[in-house]
Design a protein around this nucleic acid. Sequence first.
DNA 1: CTTTCTTGTCTAAGATCCTAAACACCATGA
DNA 2: TCATGGTGTTTAGGATCTTAGACAAGAAAG
Lengths: 182, 182
Amino acid sequence: MSVDVGARLRGIRTTFGLSQRELARRAGVTNGLISLIEQNRVSPSVSSLKKVLDGVPMSLAEFFTLDLSATPRAFFSADDLVELGNPQVSLRLVAAQRPGRQLTLLHERYAAGAATGEEMLTHRGEEAGVVIRGRIELTVGGAVRVLGPGEAYYFASQLPHRFRNVGREACEIISACTPPTF
Amino acid sequence: MSVDVGARLRGIRTTFGLSQRELARRAGVTNGLISLIEQNRVSPSVSSLKKVLDGVPMSLAEFFTLDLSATPRAFFSADDLVELGNPQVSLRLVAAQRPGRQLTLLHERYAAGAATGEEMLTHRGEEAGVVIRGRIELTVGGAVRVLGPGEAYYFASQLPHRFRNVGREACEIISACTPPTF
DNA sequence: CTTTCTTGTCTAAGATCCTAAACACCATGA
DNA sequence: TCATGGTGTTTAGGATCTTAGACAAGAAAG
């Protein structure tokens, strides 16, 4: 019952849209090594696995903690929000089943046509939000979806992501991110 | 800025009270390898590091997540409990700063002289508690302390631990443990 | 003081990892 | 059709990890 290092690395690399050569260049190793590791033809040393993950970037702890088979949901329909409050005070919670949440709320507003930029964002922490008004196109990893009022998102900020307001109306989002940055 | 695998392994091994040879025997590797890894003379392959950790036992994710320098507090004085409630409803929270808690409460009672056994316990999950009446001697890792009424504990159950009622009076504890076992 | 057992360290030799380079395949165009 | 640039794979050889066994130091008992 060994750890499938190869499948994990391949899943991460493709999620980030990198070729073996590109990841190898960033990590300072050869493309052949990436290939051998992904095929489980070798069990890499900790030091070289760390070099490879530095090219993503991702820590060893995150690498071994990651569960590819149980990828957390990235999108939630309006009905998926969990009602926590009572008839007097309504509290609708996003990703209620997700353990270890530690977020703070923000209020964002995207003008018509606005976006977070051409490049995909990728940083530490987690972020989540609810669309209040308008429509927003959200790309997370390989998945793209246009979210409307009442729909929500929740994903790890390490996944490459981008917001684009593809409508003619301004878009408002109640969003949250982890304390340190952003 | 590399990961100090050697120091981590040595810290874990000594915490569990194992010699290099004993850990090597359980893991199915040689004692020399343990020695070389702990001195950072080599960077072990993932497969052999996994074999070594299986002898503890501990997962790779737990190994790399562990932060030896910032070992969470194991003991809390009565004053260290965080008051969460209001003047009407008083809620005193144990280890409030600890992230990702998911515990359920129990009520334990130790007769005079009772103990959890000669062997140290070690299992998955986390456990915590507050002493209500009497006194209890608690050993966690290398640390030992006698706790009295109003004092509390919180530690990872993987750390070898043992409860002993060293007084003449019965001891009551409100304790909590993670869902799966115990 | 010896003997014996334990501990952690060190050293050649064998096994495995890692690199450099070539290879095969699939596109896209000239 | 033939180049060009991209992908992942394979292989020989040098670098590194891992083993088996010896070594030195300390503790406990005779």
